[in-house]
């Protein structure tokens, strides 16, 4: 564990709390892509199957359980509790274009032909693109509530912090995970446009609005 990974994980936790807070206080999941949230459940469940057979640390265990539970809770909020505020008609990204290629990539690039290893790879690839339905929705509507942009910024910060974590681990432990690094770089790249608007507008006190 190093500070980059630690604060990355904390940032990831924060993003989830921000999202849940947004839904509760506004009593609405407007502006949130249900598809992205479903993909995150798929990511966490397929990646954390090792909860059943391997022990890393208490920290690792608690975080994994939290990510699975909180992502399922968000689906419940969106589909049951605040269902009327969820508008599927603007959440139109075709998820099969993400899941299919990720499954193929996982079969080609993995660390061993075991079901759990292939699912692990799949989850890494899927996480890297899971935010796309959300960003697509943002693009379509052209604007976002400020709190939603804080959610995305915290998620983006989590991904960004994993990069110095890998650099640190390479030099301190000689540890490199090529699959995680490659997918992680792609994932972080997806946030660049968003970050630009976030830093130049939202953090200057303006509303998140994309140019028409």
């Amino acid at each position: 564990m190093n500070i980059f990974r630690f604060f990355g994980d904390i940032s990831h936790l924060a993003s989830i709390f921000i999202l849940i807070h947004k839904i509760h206080t506004s009593r609405s999941c407007r502006g949130i892509s249900f598809k992205t949230q479903v993909l995150y459940v798929a990511v966490f469940v397929t990646r954390y199957l090792d909860l059943l057979y391997s022990w890393v640390s208490l920290y690792n265990f608690v975080m994994k359980v939290f990510f699975i539970a909180s992502s399922c809770y968000i689906l419940y909020l969106m589909k049951v509790r605040f269902r009327p505020t969820n508008d599927p008609s603007i959440d139109t990204f075709r998820v099969e274009y993400l899941v299919g290629p990720c499954a193929v990539l996982a079969l080609i690039f993995n660390y061993g032909y075991a079901v759990t290893e292939v699912l692990w790879s799949f989850s890494i690839f899927l996480e890297s693109v899971a935010i796309l339905p959300q960003l697509f929705m943002l693009q379509r509507t052209g604007e976002a509530e400020t709190i939603t942009t804080h959610y995305l910024a915290a998620l983006g910060a989590y991904r960004t912090l994993y990069i110095p974590n890998w650099i640190y681990r390479y030099f301190s432990e000689g540890y490199v995970d090529p699959i995680a690094v490659t997918a992680g770089l792609v994932q972080t790249g997806l946030y660049l446009d968003f970050f630009y608007v976030y830093f130049t507008k939202v953090l200057q006190g303006q509303k998140f609005e994309l140019p028409a």
């Binding site: 990831h12 640390s57 692990w120 540890y175 995970d177």
Partner: peptide, 10 residues
């Protein structure tokens, strides 16, 4: 192998 790719990251 297990050592290097133990998947200790979240």
């Amino acid at each position: 192998h297990e050592e290097v790719h133990g998947h200790d990251e979240l």
